[in-house]
């Protein structure tokens, strides 16, 4: 009889170590109190539940937590690749210099603007699309799939597509339309870098918001909507007074998930505006300062830590919202 070491209590473990056959241990446990047996079974149940997630947990720790600890350590050094001096521990000096660093302040401000605009606009567009989709019509499934596709496009591909085929002065569709009406071509990506990036982000993220809001809309009890109709409410009145309050947790969830992802956008900026000023957010600036040629890994690490802390704060609020959502359902 094989017993996994973690499943037996310490007293039993010594018996096993002492080489006494397990049948004795079983007989032993037979004399034990009922409570002990229940405790043993519960512990066993607990391990049955924990063990399967262990590999994933180890993997996550290896690829995220260990690099994070390294970054934390680097952020406390003056490590830079372009000088042959040894890495020196300088405490929180990097962080102290952040408030006075104009580049950091600009990048942080761009990050805030970009995230807020992209999240809010995609939420509005997504909600409108979801309302349109939340009714039966011929080809509904097909239209829904089409509407989701932008979300499935790789960020780099989306960036290139918009840069050349939409924004571009020579081949861009937007400029072609402008020319049709007699206007001059505009180099959108150069003239309005932040707006250009936000437009592409909204195009990619509206489908995501649409799916979340659609789930909320379709989870509605139809008889509640019918009751409101019988009670004399207009369609708009029903949306404002019944549907919208019920959608609130879904909108909050979309906002938070979107914000967590959009705060770390890099690909779109790299492809659409490159190193131009005006649309460099924190992640982009971090890359530029370190692997992108700046080579100041110590300083860049301190920026990363700031972004991580901001993300953790947002994620925590997000988790609270999510648990609220699940509670409401039960």
């Amino acid at each position: 009889m094989y017993v996994r070491p973690e499943l037996v209590s310490s007293s039993q473990l010594t018996i096993v170590k002492g080489g006494i056959v397990m049948s004795n241990a079983v007989a032993d446990s037979g004399q034990k109190s009922h409570a002990d047996e229940v405790k043993r079974l519960e512990r066993r149940e607990g391990w049955k539940r924990r063990l399967p997630i262990l590999p994933a947990l180890i993997f996550t720790i290896v690829v995220t937590q260990i690099p994070f600890l390294f970054t934390l350590f680097y952020s406390l050094t003056d490590w830079r690749l372009d000088k042959p001096e040894p890495r020196e521990f300088i405490g929180v000096e990097n962080y102290g210099s952040l408030p006075g660093d104009k580049f950091f302040r600009d990048a942080a401000w761009i990050s805030v603007q970009m995230t807020v605009m992209a999240v809010l606009l995609s939420l509005i567009v997504g909600t409108l699309l979801a309302i349109l989709l939340d009714r039966k019509f011929f080809g509904q499934g097909f239209v829904r799939t089409l509407l989701i596709t932008p979300f499935l496009v790789m960020p780099v591909v989306a960036g290139f597509m918009w840069k050349t085929q939409m924004f571009g002065a020579t081949f861009g569709i937007l400029n072609w339309i402008l020319n049709l009406f007699g206007f001059e071509s505009i180099e959108f990506a150069t003239k309005y870098p932040l707006a250009s990036v936000v437009v592409v982000l909204v195009w990619q993220w509206s489908p995501f918001m649409m799916l979340i809001v659609l789930a909320g809309l379709q989870g509605q009890d139809t008889s509640v909507l019918e009751a409101a109709r019988v009670d004399g409410a207009t369609s708009f009145g029903i949306f404002r007074q019944i549907t919208f309050p019920q959608l609130r947790p879904f909108l909050e969830l979309g906002t938070l998930l979107g914000a967590i992802y959009l705060i770390q956008v890099y690909d779109h900026i790299e492809v659409i505006v490159g190193g131009q000023p005006g649309a460099k957010n924190l992640p982009f600036y971090i890359a530029q300062r370190s692997i992108g040629g700046g080579n100041r890994f110590g300083l860049a690490s301190s920026y990363s830590i700031i972004v991580v802390i901001a993300s953790i704060i947002i994620a925590n609020i997000g988790l609270r919202v999510l648990s609220g959502l699940l509670e409401d359902d039960s």
């Binding site: 019918e226 009751a227 109709r229 009670d231």
Partner: peptide
């Protein structure tokens, strides 16, 4: 006529109360 113009009141099997109110 639509429901709102019929001056009727209905009680549903699952009550259909407005959850947010």
């Amino acid at each position: 006529k639509p429901p709102q113009d019929r001056d009727i009141a209905m009680v549903f099997q699952n009550y259909a109360l407005y959850p947010s109110m």
